[in-house]
């Protein structure tokens, strides 16, 4: 357009002419994004890699120690517990989120009164800040003031109060429950979006073909929903595996370091105790696991595209 403009309208400024070039424009558009990635992702990551190889602590530069931090972490029983906890927490929370989220999505996919309001309000656990909701849950699990203990006790279901957060195993399951409560809406909404792309004709055809409700789910809904399911599961695994806030607020890693996740333990060592190098090494143990998850997902998506 500018090329065809009459010359008396004034010359095209040099900057505009420069941006006409595709490569210059592309670079200009990419720079902000790349800058943010470098500044907030790449730089901290490289720094963490470097720190993990040194004995740096708060107020002390430290020196290169090779893989000593990793070796120490490997033999650290608290870290071993934290790693097991992280796997446990991720595995069960994802299973529950998927099962309940799928169930909820199938329910919400039907038409009923106030469908929109119900669908929207279901997102509440997801949009409330985690710190806030985790505090509320901590209050509900409180040894003295737990509303759940009160209800169960006074309705005669239990005779002894339940040690929600004061027992390590109980506390882990509580964390799984809260994470499930918080993450389920994301599963439900995403799966619901996936469900709505499945033509109702397919279910009708399957019904005519003699498929029961379960067979319709297994032979029609599930395979067609699989790509969406895989994406949410991977997202959820990444988020759950690297979760920090929920445990930090709910149990702080206690009692007696029994509910630490890798992230909370790395924080405790690296920031709270000031051992930056060791903390960095601890947190880097998450990397290979998450990398594997992402790799599997990318491979699968590529295969789907090939079809």
């Amino acid at each position: 357009m500018s090329a065809a403009a009459p010359t008396e309208r004034g010359r095209v400024s040099p900057l505009v002419r420069l941006l006409e070039s595709e490569s210059v424009l592309a670079t200009a558009l990419l720079v902000p994004g790349v800058l943010i990635l470098v500044l907030f992702i790449a730089y901290p990551f490289v720094m963490a890699l470097w720190y993990s190889l040194t004995s740096i602590r708060v107020g002390e530069a430290g020196q290169f120690v090779g893989l000593a931090n990793f070796a120490k972490a490997w033999n650290d029983t608290i870290f071993q517990t934290a790693f097991k906890n992280t796997v446990f927490y991720t595995f069960w929370a994802t299973i529950f989120k998927l099962a309940l989220g799928m169930w909820l999505a199938l329910l919400l996919n039907r038409s009923f009164r106030f469908k929109r309001i119900v669908r929207a309000s279901m997102l509440l656990p997801f949009i409330i800040p985690t710190v806030l909701s985790a505090f509320a849950w901590r209050w509900m699990f409180d040894p003295t003031f737990s509303v759940m203990n009160w209800v169960l006790y006074h309705s005669g279901v239990i005779t002894d109060r339940l040690p929600f957060l004061s027992d390590g195993d109980w506390a882990m399951w509580c964390a799984v429950a809260v994470n499930t409560w918080r993450g389920m809406p994301f599963f439900a909404i995403t799966l619901l979006a996936g469900l709505q792309t499945i033509s109702p004709d397919l279910h009708e055809a399957a019904a005519l073909d003699g498929a029961s409700a379960w067979h319709r789910f297994w032979h029609v809904t599930w395979p067609l929903l699989l790509p969406v399911t895989l994406v949410v599961v991977v997202f959820s695994v990444i988020q759950t595996f690297s979760d920090f806030q929920l445990i930090y607020v709910l149990t702080g890693g206690g009692p007696a370091n029994s509910t630490h996740l890798i992230a909370t333990y790395a924080y405790q060592v690296g920031v709270a105790s000031g051992l930056l190098g060791e903390g960095a090494a601890l947190s880097l143990f998450m990397f290979p696991v998450l990398f594997a998850v992402v790799w599997v997902q990318l491979r699968y998506m590529k295969r789907m595209e090939g079809h």
Binding site: S199, D201, L202, E204, A205, A207, L208, G210, V220
Partner: peptide
């Protein structure tokens, strides 16, 4: 539908 011994061809085919 499954007990009516009928078969149906849909407008958009509804193939799986």
């Amino acid at each position: 539908p499954m007990d009516r011994n009928i078969a149906m061809v849909f407008q958009n085919y509804a193939l799986y």
